[in-house]
Amino acid sequence: MADIAALTALVEPLVIARGWELVRIKMTTGEMGKTLQIMAEDPATGQLVVDQCAALSREVSELFDEVDPIEEEYNLEVSSPGIDRPLTRAKDFALWAGHKAKITLTDAIDGRKKFAGTLLGLEGEAAQLRLEDGSEAVMTFPIDAIHGAKLVLTDALIAATQPQSLN
């Protein structure tokens, strides 16, 4: 399996050179074989459009043809994070405070690994979530204990991610 840290070291400078931010690099295995997913965003919009994804895909393909960092066969997917985006960086938990999210932990807390609720932001290096399981409890999860997190598609999230008018 490819080393994600090494792939990040190769890809991130290409993303930064375009003035964008790398959201995540992930290798998955599915029906179509292995897929290397590179997710990036323009900080001005929180998204990439199709032409931006295509340009980055071409650039990454050219670089990977030269350095060949992945031994096995794979498909390359370059995408924008989308509306119900993954939360991969500490700043994502602060930026999207007030929106609904799902968090999965690496290790269980009181027999649970999965939590859903409203993001409250960051407390130091930990994400805070108000649970919506009837308890309304506030949980704090160290960022490094989070296996995966993503926003939940809601009307409020759709409204918050609409392109802003230039008027």
Rank of each mutant, 00 (worst) to 15 (best):
T28L: 10
T28V: 12
G30S: 09
G30F: 11
G30L: 11
G30I: 05
E31T: 04
G33T: 09
K34V: 03
T35V: 15
L36I: 08
L36A: 11
Q37E: 14
Q37S: 13
I38Y: 02
I38C: 12
E41F: 10
E41A: 15
A44R: 15
G46T: 11
Q47I: 09
Q47K: 15
L48W: 07
V50S: 01
D51Q: 07
Q52Y: 13
Q52T: 02
C53N: 13
A54G: 11
A55Q: 14
L56R: 10
R58Y: 12
R58C: 06
E59L: 04
L63T: 02
E66I: 10
V67Y: 04
D68W: 00
D68R: 14
D68Q: 11
P69Y: 07
P69N: 10
P69S: 13
I70H: 06
E71R: 13
E72A: 13
E73I: 08
E73A: 14
E73P: 03
Y74Q: 07
Y74K: 05
N75F: 10
L76N: 07
E77G: 04
S80K: 13
P81F: 14
P81H: 14
P81K: 11
P81E: 12
R85F: 12
R85E: 11
L87S: 07
T88A: 05
T88E: 10
R89D: 06
A90W: 02
A90V: 05
D92W: 04
F93H: 02
F93L: 03
L95A: 10
L95D: 09
A97H: 09
G98M: 06
G98F: 08
K100T: 02
I103P: 01
T104W: 02
T104H: 06
T104S: 06
T104A: 07
T106I: 12
D107E: 15
D107H: 14
D107L: 12
A108L: 08
A108N: 01
I109M: 09
I109T: 09
G111V: 13
R112G: 00
K114S: 12
K114E: 15
F115K: 02
A116S: 15
L119N: 08
L120I: 11
G121M: 08
L122T: 12
E123A: 12
E123I: 03
G124T: 07
E125C: 05
A126E: 08
A126M: 10
A127Q: 04
A127G: 11
R130M: 15
E132N: 07
D133C: 03
D133R: 04
D133S: 08
D133P: 06
E136T: 05
A137Y: 08
A137I: 08
A137G: 00
A137Q: 14
V138M: 05
V138L: 01
M139C: 08
T140Y: 01
P142K: 03
I143E: 01
D144I: 02
H147I: 04
H147T: 00
G148D: 10
G148P: 00
K150R: 15
K150A: 12
L151K: 01
L153H: 05
L153D: 12
L153W: 10
T154S: 15
